[in-house]
Amino acid sequence: MWDWLKQNGLSPKSFYRTSGLCLPWLTVLFLGCAGFGLIDGLYIAPADYQQGDGFRIMYVHVPSAFAAMAVYFAMAICAVLTLVWRVKLAAVCMSCSAPIGASFTFLALVTGSIWGKPMWGTWWIWDARLTSVLILFFLYMGFIALQSILAEQHYRDRACALIALVGVINLPIIHYSVIWWNTLHQGPSISQLAKPAIAPSMLYPLLAMIAAFFLFYLSVLFMRMRNQILLREKHTHWVREVVLS
């Protein structure tokens, strides 16, 4: 079954075709979720009882932080698929995810800083949460740097996979940092076990924005992967047909 999947579902050729069909739908869904999230989050949702309208920064801060971690996790899974099973598509997915994940991490850091100034009274503090997210940003940068120095494809994929795999240790540290240590950053508002500590009218736009960030990640990822696949498979017959058509 696995071999069949690798031959058919996970082959670069079939991915190129399927992703082409998915892209318009992803874009439409993204615009829908982002539109709803923005209108609901910026206009309809009521102001917070403590933070007033300043809490609306949450609707870009939380999704970008969440997506930054999820993208790294996806890269780690791709790393295992690359190192153990040599799935070509996984290596492409991993290397194409990195710049998107890095941009989300940057966004999480800067929007957090913009939120921290009026609420906490400081742009930055070296507490465990902020520092561990900064380390995530450096991991992304390290990955991208390593990718750009190594020339040989096969060697590059494996070296990058190793960084992605080792860096995954940072993810639970980021998540639990606010619980394990005293931090200025507050604890999680949404967790799987407990009822969300956020009113439903304020939660819906957050969920819509999280969905929008993931859909955006998927659509940019697919576009990037399609570009890379053409380059990597340039000697094959099907790529020739795609380019000439």
Partner: peptide, 18 residues
């Protein structure tokens, strides 16, 4: 935005740019 306009719009503007 109840006095937080610069911060809120700054954060959303940056998101749009990214």
């Amino acid at each position: 935005m109840g006095g937080y306009g610069a911060y809120v719009w700054g954060a959303y503007g940056l998101t749009l740019v990214v």
